[in-house]
Design a protein around this nucleic acid. Structure first.
Length: 555
RNA sequence: GGCCCCGUAGCUCAGCAGGAUAGAGCAACCGCCUCCUAAGCGGUAGGCCUUGGGUUCGAAUCCCGACGGGGCCGCCA
C-alpha cells in the first residue's frame, strides 16, 4: 500500500516539474510515507512537501497544493486527499480498497508477510554457544529464544539463514570440568578432598561423578589420575553438551551446525590465524607474548593472541573462528552475546576488519541479563556457587510457549524481569495466552459457524460491503501493516517487535469479538465477518510461527 | 580513569530509521457472562518523555554536556 503511494507521488512530482509548477528539479531517493498517529489525519501521510520547502524556496503548503493537483485526478484509491498542518499531505483510502488486503492474505496464507529484502544473502546467526561445563540457565534461554526468533525472522525476510552453536570445548575450562568431576569421584570413594573454589560447584557434577564411578569402577579413578582426568573431562563434557542439546530441543531450538572450537585446533586453524595476522604486519611480540594490533582498527588497546606460556587465548581462536565463518561465504555474520561481553566487540570488529571485511559484516546483538523472580521476589542465583535455576526447570514449570514469549516481549538490549508466577498465570496478565486465546477463539467461532451450516467462505462468496463497522476497517488496516512490520523487525534485527504487534492485534480482535457477533442472522454479514476473522487468524498464526510459539485451536 | 547500555504514567515497558493531541499492560476505582471460549471486554484516573544546550520547518526519537541506575574494562572463558 505504501509502495503504490510512493509511486504515485514520484509521478506527481515529475509532472510538477514538467509543468513547471515546481522548478528545483530535486527528486529525493525515497519518500517517507507514514501512518499518522491520529486517524483524523488520514490513513497515510507524507512530509514530501516539507522536505522540498528548502530547495524549492516555497512554503510547504504551496508545494503540497501543486503535488495534490498533479495527483488527485489519477486514482480512485482515495476517498480524499488533503493538505494539513504545516504541509502534510494526508491520504484517505476508500474502505473497499482496504478490504482488498483480505483477499491478498487469503491467497497467500502462510506466506503472507514473507518478503525478499534479504535477497537470498547468506547470513549466519550464532547463538547460545554456552560452554559445555554446566546446564543452561535462564539467561541462556533468553539468548536461545532471541537467536531462534531472529533466525526465523530473517528467513521470512528472504535471507539464506544458517544457525550455529559454537562449542568452547578447547580451553582450560574443560580441564576444570574434568578435575571437578574427578575430585567428586574421589570424594564419593571416601577420600577427603579439598574441593577448590574455581571448580564447578553444582550438584550435577556429583551426578556425573556417580555415573562415572558406575561406568568405570572406583579403581580407574584412584589408580591413574591422568587418565581419569582426561576421561572425566571428555565424557563429562560430552554428556553436558548432550544435555544442552536436549534442553534446547525441548525449548524448540535447533541448530544447523554445532561447531567445535577444538576442531579449529585440530586443523591448526588457530595457528594459521595468528600467522595470517603476522604476515599482514598486524601481530607483534612483546614481553614474550604475541599481540594483535587491534588499536589500528579502533580498539582501546592491543590484545594478546598467544600467551607467554605458549597457550593461545580465547580471542585467538575466535579470530580463527570468524575467519572461517567468512571463508564459508557468509555475507553477514550475527553473534548473539550476553551483554557482559560487550567490551569484546571492538576487538572482534577489528579482527573482522583485519580479515578484509567491512566491520558491519559482523553484527553483534547483546542480550541483557534476566532477573528471575517468583511472585515479585528475586530468586537467588549464582553460577559460581552452583545455585542456579536451569532453563529446563523453567521450561517445565511455565511451559515452552510462555517462556519463549516472555523472553521476546522486550528489546533484547534492555534488562528483563522474568517472574515465574506471572509466566504461569493463564489469564490476560500473561501476554502469550492473551494472544493465543485470540487464535483459539477464532477457531471456536469457526466451529460454531459450521454448526450453523456456514463454512469458511471463499473470496467470491464475500461482499466486503457487509463490513460496515469501524472495528472491521481498523482490524483490516492492522493486518495490512503486518508485512511492513516483519520487514522492519528483520532490518533492525528486533524480533520483539512481533510480540508488540501481536498484542495490539489480539486486543483489537478481543474488543471486536466482545461487542459484535460473528455468526449472525444475516448470512452476508456472517460470511464477511468470518472471512475477516479468519484472516486475523492467519496473521496471528504466521506471527506466532516467527516466534516459535504455537497457535492452539483450543484452549 | 576509559567504554557500553538504560532513564517515557505509581510499577513493567512500547514508541515503527525525526513528524501533527506521547501509547499499552499491571496496580487502583466502577461496570459487563439466559449470547460464537470471562484465559475475554468497557469505563474512570494517571505525564515538564531525568536535565541543559545544539541540529531543523518540526526532537521522546539525531548530536554534545550534566545528573541518576546498571554493566564491562585479564597473557580468564
Amino acid at each position: 500500500m505504501k509502495n503504490t503511494l510512493k509511486k504515485l507521488l514520484f509521478q506527481a512530482l515529475e509532472d510538477c516539474y514538467k509543468q513547471e509548477r515546481l522548478n528545483s528539479g530535486v527528486v529525493p531517493d525515497d519518500i517517507l510515507i507514514e501512518v499518522p498517529a491520529n486517524s483524523d489525519h488520514g490513513d497515510f501521510a507524507t512530509n514530501l512537501a516539507m522536505t522540498l520547502a528548502k530547495p524549492e524556496k516555497k512554503k510547504p503548503r504551496q508545494i503540497a497544493e501543486a503535488l495534490v493537483e498533479a495527483l488527485e485526478t489519477q486514482n480512485e484509491l482515495f476517498s480524499k486527499v488533503e493538505i494539513a498542518g504545516p504541509g502534510f499531505i494526508n491520504f484517505y483510502l476508500t474502505s473497499s480498497s482496504w478490504y482488498t488486503i483480505l483477499d491478498d492474505i487469503q491467497a497467500k496464507g502462510e506466506t503472507y508477510g514473507l518478503s525478499d529484502i534479504g535477497k537470498g544473502k547468506k547470513i549466519q546467526v550464532e547463538f547460545v554457544s554456552a560452554n559445555p561445563t554446566g546446564p543452561l540457565h535462564i539467561g541462556h534461554g533468553r539468548g536461545a529464544a532471541t537467536g531462534d526468533a531472529l533466525a526465523r525472522l530473517l528467513a521470512a525476510c528472504g535471507y539464506d539463514v544458517q544457525r550455529e552453536y559454537y562449542i568452547n570445548d578447547a580451553g582450560n575450562q574443560m580441564e576444570t570440568l574434568g578435575r571437578s568431576i574427578y575430585l567428586r569421584c574421589l570424594e564419593l570413594e571416601g577420600q577427603t578432598v579439598d574441593f577448590p573454589q574455581d571448580c564447578y560447584q553444582g550438584d550435577y557434577i556429583r551426578d556425573f561423578a556417580r555415573e562415572a564411578l558406575a561406568d568405570k569402577g572406583a579403581a580407574f579413578f584412584t589408580d591413574n589420575e591422568e587418565e581419569a582426568l582426561k576421561y572425566c573431562s571428555e565424557v563429562g563434557g560430552g554428556k553436558i553438551l548432550k544435555g544442552i542439546e536436549d534442553d534446547l530441543r525441548e525449548f524448540g531450538v535447533t541448530f544447523d551446525r554445532w561447531y567445535s572450537e577444538k576442531t579449529l585446533y585440530d586443523r591448526d586453524e588457530v595457528r594459521k590465524g595468528i600467522d595470517f595476522l603476522r604476515e599482514k604486519g598486524l601481530a607483534y611480540e612483546k614481553e614474550g607474548a604475541v599481540w594483535f594490533r587491534t588499536t589500528d582498527y579502533g580498539d582501546d588497546k592491543d590484545r594478546v593472541l598467544l600467551r607467554g606460556n605458549g597457550v593461545t587465548t580465547y580471542f585467538a581462536s575466535d579470530v580463527a573462528y570468524h575467519k572461517e565463518k567468512f571463508d564459508r561465504g557468509f555475507d553477514t555474520v550475527i553473534d548473539i552475546w550476553g551483554a557482559d561481553h560487550h567490551g569484546y566487540i571492538p576487538r572482534m570488529k577489528a579482527a573482522v576488519a583485519a580479515l578484509g571485511r567491512d566491520k558491519e559484516d559482523l553484527q553483534v546483538i547483546l542480550v541483557q541479563l534476566v532477573n528471575l523472580l517468583r511472585g515479585g521476589n528475586p530468586v537467588a542465583m549464582s553460577t559460581r556457587a552452583g545455585e542456579f535455576v536451569t532453563l529446563q526447570e523453567v521450561v517445565q514449570e511455565v511451559g515452552r510457549d510462555a517462556c519463549r514469549y516472555v523472553f521476546l516481549t522486550r528489546h533484547s538490549d534492555s534488562k528483563l524481569d522474568f517472574d515465574l508466577e506471572l509466566a504461569k498465570q493463564q489469564n490476560a496478565d500473561n501476554p502469550v495466552y492473551y494472544v493465543q486465546y485470540a487464535h483459539a477463539r477464532i477457531c471456536s467461532v469457526n466451529r460454531k459457524a459450521q454448526e450453523e451450516g456456514l463454512a469458511e467462505p471463499a473470496p467470491a462468496e464475500v461482499d466486503s460491503a457487509a463490513l460496515t463497522l469501524a472495528e472491521e476497517l481498523g482490524l483490516t488496516k492492522i493486518l495490512a501493516q503486518y508485512p511492513e512490520m516483519v520487514e522492519g523487525a528483520g532490518r533492525a534485527f528486533e524480533p520483539h517487535r512481533i510480540t508488540i504487534y501481536l498484542q495490539d492485534l489480539a486486543a483489537r480482535f478481543h474488543a471486536y469479538y466482545n461487542r459484535h457477533r460473528i455468526v449472525t442472522e444475516d448470512r452476508a454479514v456472517s460470511l464477511a465477518r468470518l472471512y475477516l476473522v479468519n484472516r486475523i487468524k492467519t496473521v496471528i498464526a504466521n506471527a506466532l510461527a516467527l516466534l516459535g510459539v504455537s497457535a492452539p485451536e483450543k484452549m
